[in-house]
């Protein structure tokens, strides 16, 4: 029961046109109850999930962008973003939200766990993961 596995949630869909992004986020929040080593990978249109400045006041949809900022509290250690996917969409990490992480026991803090990675790193990170959930 106590063996900790490396989980990766792979997000490749834009946030509002389909339900995938929200479902992934909910599964991450629920899964956080089990002590695992969790990271999220955003690639292709999935990188749009983290773009700051979303305003759904005229769309009758819940704006769940603020919820990503709580992931650090839920024990998520890394939000990786594929660099090439950002570039193809005219985006940089400056366009993305920041997510802080803090260990309440040790008071170790990281200001921002959102990190752009290149293709080689993506390959490596996925290979290192024991379970990859795709959305």
């Amino acid at each position: 029961m106590s063996d900790i596995k490396k989980f990766m949630y792979l997000n490749r869909r834009a946030p509002y046109g389909t339900i995938y992004a929200w479902e992934s986020l909910e599964v991450v929040l629920i899964g956080a109850a089990f002590d695992q080593q969790v990271s999220l990978m955003f690639m292709d249109d999935g990188v749009f999930q983290l773009v700051k400045g979303s305003d759904t006041s005229q769309s009758d949809m819940k704006n769940f962008l603020p919820t990503y900022r709580t992931l650090g509290d839920y024990g998520v250690r890394h939000l990786y973003v594929d660099k090439a996917s950002l570039e193809a969409r005219g985006l940089t990490t400056d366009d993305l939200i920041e997510v802080a992480w803090e260990d309440f026991e040790t008071e170790e803090e990281v200001d921002n766990i959102v990190e752009a990675v290149d293709a080689d790193q993506v390959v490596q990170l996925m290979a290192e993961s024991e379970v990859v959930f795709s959305f």
Partner: peptide
């Protein structure tokens, strides 16, 4: 954050 936190959080 637009969610109700889990009890642990």
């Amino acid at each position: 954050y637009q969610i109700a936190p889990a009890v642990r959080v």
